[in-house]
Nucleic acid binder design. Structure first.
Lengths: 352, 352
DNA sequence: TTGTAAGCGTTATCAC
DNA sequence: GTGATAACGCTTACAA
């Protein structure tokens, strides 16, 4: 139970310098002494004081995450899985994770404070919006950062990890078109969020390729929670010319969409096709192994791991600006099939 | 853009001591100088280096949360809302939140390391199990802590914030009994978690009071996720003597239970009654304003706030061991009513 | 009311 | 290989 380096070195009859070097793996110390020091440290349960070490080195070995909390006290459910991924990396590489939950309008000030107090070595930026001020701010502060997602412009001036949302939604749309669908609805997230915007672009791109007109009546953009998905889908189904397929932007929204579909007495995969984006939330599996939906999947935990590794590499000077575009994969479930009318004729035609 | 106290004090023609005192609100400094110092600090964007301050004071002003991650990479979805609540308090009181995501079997070592490195002033313990080693460990380490929940024994030797789970489930059960139900099922969480155990006790207590036999065939204890709730409820409904009501331990389980009920063509509130525990998850509202269920509700964010306040009070020496038992409240929705048979006769009898 | 100087527990820079 | 010694940037007795 030794408090500090001084006492430990005295007990060993060595200087603090040598003990410190031995413990930190410096090469110039003899193997015998190193072993002696390590044993003594373990025996006396010694470990360096993190504050003292930080003061001496100037490195905090801490990564900050600012979590803005908006009016409805809503905190992004994806966040949990992201930090689970990032946290594992921090752990492995000897970094700490500092999370600051702040009012949405105080986010800027929080970054400034983190820099001023030298509280962290870098930060992860979550949920970029179309014209996001944070990259510029962090640049001017000189605080290393990695963005989870991308802004719309100047995204080559900083490091990011993003999913190819545009392609993911284009492919999902093509998949539905390939099945014979032409009335395809989109239940999207708020489009000031860049990922939502790109998803719509991908969706529209695929429609245009196929010569299908983009119908604003088949698109909704809103919060990604159950009741909202429910409401959007209910409205679509009540329209004059309802969709035969729908693309959903999140697992939570998909819950609501499924509810609406069921209430209308429709069977997913037969009467209507559903594809949802799936972040692989640990507590809610909407994919084939869970609720059975056809999904476009890209793990958010994986994104967290990449962000963490990239940021640490950057902080340690091993890497500069990097862009990582993860591809989502379409995983077929039971919620997709040919449109109701086409299905039978198409299949029987092929069968004969 | 002044780096440190020294430069700032030189620029002001004052000693570091005076500047430090002025900034930290010590009373012995004159109001004029204090104002001058504060203005200069703001002008030069000065704030003390957190590591240096921590080294000098011996206080880290940091609270640790250890998040064990188990085999399935499952991370408790409630966690997000808890830290949103706790984080707001940390923020307000000038504390930082350190989150350590570790393999479940490394939790003990993580607490030890936090103490050894003097990394935090205290920790919050999540998800206590029946015979939990953590309170004992933290006690012996001399690391202040507050438990969210309680262990089964020795829960007066440490501070905790818990919901009166026993009473909550007893009252919910009584409510159902009052409506005329006698076959009441329980879809519970894993019962090595103390809160789940207490919930079952409350449920059984109310049954016994009413002279209803506890039927093991009406109880399930498992992970609190959608598919598991679905499976449990499906099994209950398929039995010879199916329940007319069910008590569910979490919002996610309730999702599955609702699905099973619907698939059996039953209408909640009419054909079968459902009451679910509701942690007020920010992203999933199963209560009357959302999915409409009758719920037993106690906010998990509130629990987070209390834990944080209690721990800080304890660290700052303002408070000793405190126990806070929050009462959940039953919020009637549309998922409860008299049992199908009893309903009509009961009502009509009363009407005449 | 203000200042001097001694810590706090490390790591880093030189010597030897 | 090892050891003095000076930072690191702050707080806090103790003096004045």
């Amino acid at each position: 139970m030794l408090a500090n380096l001084k006492e430990l070195s005295e007990k060993l009859g060595l200087s603090q310098t040598t003990v410190s070097r031995a413990l930190n793996g410096y090469p110039e110390v003899s193997e015998t002494t190193r072993q002696r020091v390590i044993d003594a440290a373990r025996e006396h349960n010694y470990a360096p004081d993190s504050s003292a070490r930080r003061l001496a080195t100037g490195k905090t070995r801490t990564i900050g995450h600012v979590v803005p909390i908006s009016k409805h006290d809503m905190i992004n459910p994806h966040f949990t899985d992201f930090i689970a991924g990032a946290g594992a990396v921090y752990n492995r590489r000897g970094y700490d994770m500092l999370i600051s939950v702040v009012d949405a309008d105080k986010e800027t000030e929080t970054y400034r404070a983190m820099k001023r107090n030298r509280r962290v070595d870098g930060v992860i930026v979550h949920g970029p919006v179309a014209s996001d001020a944070r990259p510029g701010l962090l640049h001017s502060l000189g605080l290393p950062f990695v963005v989870h997602g991308r802004t719309l412009q100047d995204d080559d001036s900083y490091s990011w990890v993003d999913v190819n949302n545009r392609r993911a939604f284009a492919e999902a749309t093509r998949y539905l078109i390939g099945l014979g669908h032409r009335r395809i609805a989109l239940v999207n997230g708020w489009e000031h969020m860049v990922f939502a915007r790109r998803r719509r672009e991908g969706y529209e791109e695929a429609l245009r390729e196929a010569g299908i007109a983009v119908d604003p009546l088949l698109m909704s953009s809103n919060e990604m929670i159950e009741p909202v998905g429910h409401e959007a889908m209910t409205a679509f189904l009540a329209s004059d010319d309802p969709p035969t397929a729908v693309l959903v932007a999140s697992a939570l929204s998909a819950l609501g969409v499924m509810g609406a579909v069921r209430e209308h007495g429709l069977v997913p995969g037969t009467d209507i096709s559903i594809i949802s984006y799936d972040d692989k939330l640990s507590f809610l599996d909407i994919g084939p192994d869970g609720m059975g939906l056809t999904v476009i999947r890209s793990g958010i935990g994986e994104a967290g791991r990449h962000c963490a590794d990239m940021l640490i590499d950057m902080i340690e000077g091993r890497r500069g600006i990097v862009h990582m575009l993860l591809e989502a994969s379409l995983v077929p479930g039971t919620s997709t099939g040919p449109p109701a009318g086409v299905a039978v004729s198409g299949k029987s035609a092929a069968g004969r």
